[in-house]
């Protein structure tokens, strides 16, 4: 059975919470909240998201440090020119450049991590409503097609101002 999606748009936070309660009661626990500004965690009764973002900078830092170390050590061994009476492999300058490499690696990987963990870029925007960035709250459910009607009822009972679903779109097209 194919899955379909449905999006309920709510005017304010309180009605969105009512809608979320209805969805939970109807057995849809795996819905997404879409909002135009961040709300304190757990405001809609959602579980705190699990992510592994902290791993990214560590990996990046290690990569960056290795590259920095290899680059500084390698180039100085390859072109050994003594300056200022300092040893060819001088640790403080190597540490400085490796440090910059470490930090650059950490930042690059963190950025990649944020984008990846935010599940971006999405191939398509999908069901969406531009009013969400205006203060409206969206509740987005993906479920087997025959359950969509139930979800729609739950959303409407929660005083959703608008409900869109991929089913309607398909019907309109067909």
């Amino acid at each position: 059975m194919a899955n379909a999606s449905i999006l309920g748009v709510f005017k304010d936070v309180d009605s969105a919470v009512a809608g979320a309660d209805n969805l939970n009661a109807a057995g849809f626990n795996d819905f997404e909240v879409l909002s135009g500004s961040p709300y304190p965690e757990g405001a809609f009764g959602e579980k705190p998201p699990r992510h592994k973002l902290y791993v990214f900078p560590l990996i990046g830092a290690m990569c960056g440090f290795t590259v920095g170390l290899l680059l500084t050590a390698g180039t100085q061994i390859a072109y050994p020119m003594v300056t200022g009476g300092k040893p060819i492999l001088s640790l403080p300058p190597m540490a400085i450049i490796s440090y910059e490499g470490t930090m650059l690696g950490a930042v690059l990987f963190t950025i990649l991590g944020v984008i990846f963990e935010s599940r971006l870029p999405r191939p398509r925007l999908g069901l969406y409503d531009t009013r969400i960035t205006e203060g409206y709250i969206g509740l987005f459910v993906t479920a087997p097609e025959e359950q969509i009607a139930r979800a729609e009822k739950a959303l409407r009972d929660g005083r959703a101002v608008d409900v869109k679903s991929t089913l309607q779109r398909a019907r309109a097209r067909g």
């Binding site: 997404e32 909240v33 879409l34 909002s35 135009g36 961040p38 709300y39 965690e41 809609f44 959602e46 705190p48 998201p49 992510h51 973002l53 963190t110 944020v114 984008i115 963990e117 935010s118 599940r119 971006l120 870029p121 999405r122 191939p123 398509r124 925007l125 999908g126 969406y128 969400i132 960035t133 987005f140």
Partner: peptide, 17 residues
């Protein structure tokens, strides 16, 4: 915007990031 939608997960990651 890479199709940003504003899910709690995305907002949470914004804060953490």
């Amino acid at each position: 915007a890479m199709n940003w939608r504003g899910t709690p997960r995305q907002w949470h990651l914004q804060t953490v990031a």
